[in-house]
Design a protein around this nucleic acid. Structure first.
Length: 1120
RNA sequence: AGAUCCGUAGCUCAGCCUGGUUAGAGCACUACACUGAUAAUGUAGGGGUCCCCAGUUCAAAUCUGGGCGGGUCUACCA
């Protein structure tokens, strides 16, 4: 315990950061913050695991500040908040990094480097920056358990994932199916969406596009019997190589289609074609509509056309057409071999069809597009994959067989098969338009070759089975901001598709499914124990070397390649091998509520007590990532939400609003920022500058501002407090003076303080930390520092250490201490520093950290809104008086006699009376005269109250406002008495009378003849600026005091030093010194003040343009 | 393409839900003042097509519709 409060030379937030951090380490403050809450209700928080294979950036600081402040707040509210850290360690980014580092590609894995060595490397790399992460975590003040984190690559973690998968499997929610995925024929591998989002993968390319004609077979069904020529359906494609695989045509149910009579531009034959009405202009020229068909000559540029009939899309549904490019490989027999019972070559209705471009009829090849696949499945179109995995046409396609659909091999003799296809179609009269078309198309980032969409086997979780339930549960989640939950997330749920889990990679959680070669039998393993048992079973059943390396200790590493070594045995006694897939890393993180506890194998209670989470927070980019996968797994496995509240924070942009990226070189190094400005100012800025979900334009100037404006002011207030508290020995040992026994100013600041506590609590509870922080800023700046302290300064350094002074100390102490608590969640270091600086002297709290204390609760009895309103009035009045002084150039030090304040009503008069003392001292005025409402001194003016009158008057509002603005005092008084009729002159003509009430007017002071006035709303100030001789003398005395104080300061006297003052005699201007001698001596702590005829070493000072020579010396005889 | 957030002073943001009179704050800039809190503070000044258009209304920054611009996410399609 200290006997003096610590005093500082200047504020150094960075130093406070390091100092407090060290203290936290020594006292295990974080651990204590949890153990101290043993037995308290839990507040459950989940840490979204970052990946430690990259450096932390400033955007990590924002989301972690958010998480931390909520956890700290809840801890202070009495909850026990366990915070288990975690690391996301699997996945593609890790693998890509390793490949780059080793200079290999995916194909080399298993060849140039063994899978075991490759995965070993991945494991090394994945924690590469863990130290940096731990470091930033500490330095930014993020309290999270770094000693026992969950790590997704551990066996325990994976085992839980297997358990989850097997549960899903048991429920029939895990299935294998073909899906259409981006695939690179050049690289021979499927690509993840992540890979597709690498910079530069989407390129503008020119492809041969074709508008082709499908011959309608049953035109009779839509009443076209009388048309003798063929009727064609027009469809457009940018990938003609998919046309042989066409199995359907998709139309939009509500799109208007038209039948058009025209000539084919290539064969010049008369044709009837069908396309969307709104796309006519893309194919036909307006000026030749209905023009002369008879005189058309083959080769004419302008081709006549005529609209014959119109249909809705759904009228076309089910119509059949002839296969466009029949080949051996695509005969109906072949189709039935692949998909028995398929019913292709018909028109189907699909919702993805638009009239943006093309013809409004979409060529549908189920193998080569996700939408096509969906439409094919829904309508039983079958599937034809006439292209192999190398990207060339398969056998049985005549001259096209063996030809690559794109130039994948950089073959100098490559000829584009797409063009050949178009040529053939032109010849057959099945092409309507062939042209180069420039569009944006994805490319394989590794080979730079265009990708195709291709059907691949994949494992899925049947999320669609629980769609309704997931939507229902989502409605119970508190989303911040709400729009993300209903919009981005809700929408996503509405359009949910099954979750494709498969990844053909190496470093990840293996799918624990083994199956026989013919696929007839399979097993899904749900635990290591089960696997080991199966290993042994298979070894016995299959004999030989089966699983020989895994018989003793079982399996030791659940990754590839070890799991792939293992062969299990089926019920029928057949060997089973593991399916090749790894699972999506998002499954890893989505299962963290269970896997972090190794549930259900261990820690069943820990899990039960920590599920679901009360709160999680991550960047908005996780909405369809982590937020989604948590939600899916909780719903499917436990029919529960995974989290009750989720805050999605926005992005951190650079100060110009650009996304931060290494490429642009605009990334902000969080280490440097925290080092330079301290963690608190950084956190404060991030929290208060913009709501968490708004994107933040990061600008260090903002941090500097927080530093100066908020922390600087609070620090000054603290310094002020300790300056005097140390002098007077205030240590809170006196008994607490009841609030009602304190001066009004104290009551006021305590009322404001408690209002603040209430506001801050409300906002923290609503997960609105920005509002909470801003409220604290306003309080510290406007109320505590610039009003309370300013007005109370004298109370601290003048007078006896008695009731009034102690009251002031107790009040200011309470403000500072309470603030240290309310700000603790956002600025944990400074708050603890402040708290301990106070508490180390007073020992009011037995706790060693502010973070262990309880968050203040607002004391309702301390809140006096009337008082707060009055004080606002005092502030406004003082501000007006100061502005008037400024206007007439009379400094505050010069006392003035009187100010007039007109009161518009009794209440206002009463309020002014109650604050007149404050106004007087604050503005150095002797008298406040309140002018009653009915005085005839001031001239009043009225303004219409638009709110009340607008409703009554409607369109006559303008007229009334005009009239009211011309009212004189008498008319206004009439209105106030009641019964004033605005349209007296119209009554005779039979108009309804318009009756004005007092509430219909806003009364303001117009002017006070003969005075300088200033107004602000309904408040008016009139200042008497007459300077009497007496006032001038007093002003001079104050001026003199000021000069002496400056001398004291220059001479480095202590505050408490008493002095002697000698003044060189100077006739004429010394009167004020004689007259105000007592006042002056009291102010400057002078034991003597004497005029002397001679002064050898005096200082020259100036008082109101007169020179005086004085000598100030310390009076050593006077004890302190 | 869909969803979502944002657009108010040179910059960062309030206000918008619940329409009302002269649209605010801080920073920056300029001038003046203050000076036992002083690398603090006060007062004043300049600075605005409240992104645009239309509608509703006596009245729109605020409500409705349609655009535009920027960010993000998802999708990528003939």
């Amino acid at each position: 315990m200290l006997d003096r409060y610590r005093e500082y030379k200047q504020l150094n937030l960075s130093e406070i950061g390091t100092e407090i951090l060290q203290k936290w380490g020594e006292t295990h403050a974080f651990e204590q913050s949890i153990t101290l809450r043993d037995g308290a209700p839990a507040f459950v928080f989940y840490e979204g695991p970052p990946s430690a294979n990259g450096m932390p950036g400033i955007h990590h600081v924002i989301s972690r500040t958010l998480k931390d402040l909520v956890c700290r707040y809840k801890t202070m509210q009495g909850f026990q908040v366990n915070r288990k850290g975690g690391w996301d360690t699997h996945g593609l980014p890790v693998e890509l990094g390793v490949e780059k580092e080793l200079g290999i590609t995916k194909e080399d894995i298993g060849k140039k480097i063994s899978v075991a060595d490759y995965n070993k490397k991945c494991k090394e790399v994945v924690m590469r920056y863990k130290d940096k992460w731990d470091d930033i975590t500490q330095k930014m003040g993020y309290w999270v358990d770094l000693d026992n984190p969950y790590i997704t690559f551990t066996n325990d973690y994976i085992e839980t994932l297997w358990w989850c998968l097997s549960e899903l499997y048991k429920k029939g929610l895990l299935y294998e199916s073909v899906s259409i995925q981006p695939y690179s024929p050049a690289a021979g591998t499927g690509l993840s969406s992540h890979e597709l989002n690498q910079p530069g993968t989407y390129k503008d390319v020119k492809d041969t596009s074709a508008t082709v004609l499908f011959k309608l077979q049953d035109k009779d069904k839509i009443g076209l019997q009388e048309i003798k020529s063929d009727v064609f359906l027009m469809a457009w494609t940018t990938t003609p190589w998919t046309l042989p695989s066409n199995l359907g045509l998709s139309v939009g149910a509500h799109i208007d289609y038209v039948l058009v009579k025209t000539y084919n531009p290539y064969t010049f034959e008369l044709q009837y074609v069908v396309l969307a009405k709104s796309l006519l202009h893309a194919y036909f020229k307006e000026e030749v509509q209905n023009s002369d068909f008879e005189n058309y000559q083959p080769g004419d540029k302008l081709i006549p056309w005529q609209m014959i009939k119109q249909f809705k899309g759904n009228e076309l549904e089910g119509l059949r057409y002839e296969q466009l490019l029949p080949t051996e490989a695509s005969s109906i027999e072949e189709i039935h071999k692949i998909t028995p019972g398929a019913d292709p070559f018909k028109i189907v209705v699909a919702d993805f069809v638009t009239t943006q471009d093309g013809t409004g009829i979409v060529h549908t090849a189920p193998a080569f597009g996700a939408d096509d696949f969906k439409a094919g499945k829904k309508n039983n179109l079958g599937i034809l994959t006439l292209v192999d995995k190398e990207g060339k046409f398969i056998d049985g396609m005549g001259e096209w067989s063996g030809r690559y659909v794109k130039d994948y091999k950089d073959d100098p003799h490559y000829t584009d098969v797409n063009i050949d296809i178009c040529v053939q179609l032109k010849k057959e009269g099945r092409a309507f338009k062939v042209e180069k078309y420039e569009h944006n198309y994805p490319h394989c980032w590794r080979t730079d070759k265009p990708i195709i969409y291709y059907p691949l086997d994949a494992w899925f979780i049947k999320t669609t089975a629980a769609k309704e339930r997931m939507i229902e549960l989502n409605n119970t989640i508190n989303w911040k901001p709400a729009s993300t939950g209903t919009g981005r997330f809700g929408n996503w749920l509405e359009n949910m598709v099954d979750w494709n889990l498969s990844r053909s990679r190496f470093w990840g959680t293996p799918l624990p499914i083994w199956r026989t070669e013919d696929g007839s039998e399979e097993i899904c393993i749900g635990s290591v124990a089960a696997l080991n048992e199966e290993i042994k079973k298979a070894a016995i059943a299959l004999g030989g070397d089966t699983n020989k390396n895994y018989l003793h200790d079982g399996i030791l590493d659940l990754h590839k390649p070890y799991v792939d070594d293992i062969i299990l045995v089926s019920k029928q006694g057949k060997p089973m091998k593991r399916v090749a897939d790894l699972i999506d890393v998002w499954f890893d993180s989505g299962a963290m509520p269970y896997a972090q506890w190794h549930y259900p194998f261990e820690n069943k209670d820990s899990f039960k007590n920590a599920f679901p989470a009360d709160f999680i927070a991550e960047g908005v980019d996780q909405t369809r990532g982590w937020f989604y996968t948590l939600h899916v797994l909780a719903t499917l496995l436990f029919d529960s939400v995974a989290y009750k509240t989720v805050v999605s924070n926005g992005l951190v942009l650079d100060k110009n609003g650009n996304k931060m990226s290494k490429r642009l070189g605009n990334v902000v190094d969080p280490f440097e920022t925290i080092e330079k400005y301290g963690p608190d100012a950084t956190r404060w800025y991030l929290v208060t500058n913009a709501s968490p979900w708004d994107s933040l334009k990061f600008n260090v100037e903002g941090i500097k501002e927080a530093q100066r404006k908020f922390f600087g002011t609070l620090y000054n207030t603290y310094q002020f407090f300790v300056l005097y508290a140390n002098v007077d020995g205030f240590t809170c040992k006196e008994s607490y003076i009841p609030i009602e026994e304190r001066p009004e100013l104290d009551q006021w600041i305590l009322s404001s303080l408690n209002s603040l506590v209430k506001e801050v609590t409300d906002n923290f509870d609503k997960y609105e930390p920005t509002q909470a922080g801003r409220a604290m800023e306003t309080f510290v700046d406007e109320q505590l520092s610039n009003w309370y302290v300013r007005l109370c300064r004298r109370r601290f350094w003048k007078g006896e250490y008695a009731h009034d002074k102690i009251s002031a100390y107790q009040t200011l102490y309470e403000c500072l201490e309470t603030l240290s608590k309310t700000m603790a969640p956002i600025a944990p270091f400074f708050a603890d520093w402040l708290f301990n600086n106070l508490n180390d002297v007073t020992a009011k709290s037995p706790l060693s950290s502010v973070h262990h204390t309880h968050f203040p609760t607002p004391i309702a009895e301390a809140i006096n809104t009337g008082l707060e309103k009055r004080m606002k009035l005092a502030q406004d009045a003082s501000s007006l008086i100061l502005s008037l002084r400024k206007k007439v150039n009379i400094k505050v030090r010069q006392p003035l006699q009187k100010v007039f304040i007109p009161a518009l009503d009794k209440e206002m008069a009463e309020n002014i009376r109650m604050i007149e003392e404050i106004i007087k001292t604050e503005t150095n005025i002797k008298e406040v005269e309140i002018l009653d409402a009915d005085n005839d001194f001031i001239r009043k003016k009225a303004k219409a109250n638009f709110k009340t009158l607008g409703k009554k008057l409607g369109s006559r509002m303008k007229w009334a406002a005009e009239k009211i603005s011309l009212f004189n005092n008498a008319e206004i008084e009439e209105v106030q008495k009641g019964g004033y009729i605005l349209n007296n002159d119209e009554i005779a003509a039979g108009a309804e009378p318009i009756l004005l009430n007092e509430e219909d007017l806003d009364i303001i002071t117009d002017e006070i003849p003969g005075f300088e006035i200033a107004t602000n709303g309904s408040l008016t100030i009139a200042l008497d600026i007459t300077l009497s001789h007496q006032l001038l003398m007093e002003g001079a005395a104050r001026e003199f005091v000021n000069r002496v104080q400056n001398i004291r300061k220059d001479k480095d006297f202590e505050l408490t030093d008493h002095i002697r003052v000698e003044i060189l005699e100077n006739d004429g201007i010394q009167n004020f010194i004689i007259e105000f001698k007592d006042y002056i001596c009291g102010e400057i702590l002078a034991d003597s003040l004497e005029f002397v005829p001679h002064l050898s070493n005096g200082t020259s000072i100036e008082v109101n343009n007169n020179s005086l020579t004085i000598n100030v010396t310390k009076n050593s005889k006077h004890g302190n």
